[in-house]
């Protein structure tokens, strides 16, 4: 799905051509679900429609298969399934598509911030990761971005990526296609995101378009998911500390 993105969409997207984004909330805390629901209702107007909620892995798989939403807001820690939480939901919903044929996309949401959890859910196939302390408008913007097939990186996730790929220590890919390292440009983008820059600020800083920033971020996400760089797993396992 690569329809043109609405202009000026940072955090406050304009109405989408294909109707509202259909959203499923998966979190084992009812209080948190109702909080997110209220917050999204407030900021999104009619651009988001919450079509289902689930509190466990098994419920989530059933609801997602039934509703075929555009985006699933997925907690990393969930009871049920094989005990791997959010990753199990993604595996259980492999191949499910929306009515327009696009794959169902997952945005991970967690309080954990532990590298192990974050890397695991991204490698399972989530399109992005944000912390639960994210503000309502930012969350709305992240959902729209994921619905459009782009990746959403929090500063924390960007920091993890820089660390895990050895980019902070100066390891840079010779060619962009190399899966085990970041390219110089990707490293710059990641560094700016880690510094708290929004995508459009990154674009301005690097004199590139927002679309190019999104391409770089998606490419980093792909590397994160596909890389066999063994340090990635070892690093995530060993890094229990924030």
């Amino acid at each position: 799905m690569s329809q043109p993105r609405p202009t000026g969409s940072q955090g406050t997207p304009a109405a989408r051509p294909g109707g509202p984004i259909r959203l499923v909330l998966v979190d084992d805390h009812r209080m948190f679900r109702s909080g997110v629901r209220a917050e999204l209702d407030e900021v999104s107007g009619n651009r988001l429609e919450i079509v289902g909620e689930a509190g466990t892995v098994d419920q989530a798989v059933v609801v997602i298969r039934e509703q075929r939403p555009d985006v699933v807001l997925l907690d990393v820690h969930l009871p049920g399934g094989d005990g791997r939480g959010g990753s199990d939901v993604i595996t259980g919903c492999a191949g499910v598509t929306t009515e327009s044929g696009a794959p169902v996309r997952f945005l991970a949401l967690s309080v954990s911030d532990a590298a192990e959890d974050v890397i695991a859910v991204i490698r399972a196939g989530a399109r992005g990761y944000v912390t639960k302390t994210i503000s309502g408008p930012e969350l709305g913007g992240a959902i729209v971005r994921v619905a459009d097939g782009d990746a959403v990186f929090s500063p924390r996730l960007a920091g993890f990526v820089l660390d895990a790929f050895g980019a902070a220590a100066g390891e840079i890919a010779e060619v962009d296609e190399e899966l085990d390292r970041l390219s110089a440009r990707e490293r710059e983008v990641m560094r700016l995101i880690a510094r708290g820059y929004q995508y459009k600020e990154v674009a301005k800083e690097l004199f590139i378009s927002v679309k190019t920033v999104e391409t770089h971020v998606s490419s980093v996400l792909r590397k994160l998911q596909l890389s066999s760089r063994h340090e990635l797993t070892v690093w995530a396992m060993g890094r229990r500390l924030l």
């Binding site: 500063p155 920091g159 820089l162 902070a168 220590a169 100066g170 560094r191 880690a194 510094r195 708290g196 820059y197």
Partner: peptide, 19 residues
């Protein structure tokens, strides 16, 4: 707010940003 701080400890230099 929001206030962000990013510290990158590289092999040749340490860089820190507060925004």
């Amino acid at each position: 707010p929001p206030v962000s701080a990013y510290v990158e400890v590289g092999t040749g230099s340490v860089e820190a940003f507060v925004r």
